[in-house]
Amino acid sequence: MIEIRIHGRGGQGNVVAAYLLAMAAFEEGQYGQAFPNFGAERRGAPVIAFVRIADHPIQRRNQVLHPAFLIIQDQALLHVPGVTDGLLPEGKILVNSTLSSAELSQELQKEVIAIPATSIAKEVLGRPVPNTALLSAFLTLTELLPDDSLGKALSRRFQGNVLEKNLQLVKQAASHVTVGQWRGEKHATSA
């Protein structure tokens, strides 16, 4: 089972990102579980969402305390106490940031990859919503699920022009990272 924690702010589509990732797993015949941990329900407030992906039904409902991956939707959250807590020793961080991956890795003493998800989204969608771009980069890096799984999940949730643009965004964001760079690492927290 792979456990992922997504940090963002209210209004950034944090919960949607978690749901999409779990839906993408479902589309590939795997089991996905996703749930939010809301703070105060308002735009801008930090929001956490959890995702589990496994090849068997997932029964536990406790929060993900030791994720293999962190997806951070707002670079400022990297410096909020607790955000990187519990990340597995070999855990990786994908962050929406214009800073360099090398610098961030050095600073956090973890393998960090930064992509400018907000500006990619602005360019393709016309809106500063970083979630789809980050998910695309995440799945490209890890190859956790086949290429088109995210597209399948998006097509369950969106249609028409919004879907088209999101699919375009998936392609665009994937080109910002190296395919399979995080593949095959020992990410599983348990069977």
Binding site: Y19, F26, G32, Q33, F35, I58
Partner: peptide, 10 residues
């Protein structure tokens, strides 16, 4: 609440 209502699963 949340633990079930807001959890996406199969």
């Amino acid at each position: 609440g949340f633990t079930l209502t807001h959890t996406l699963e199969t």
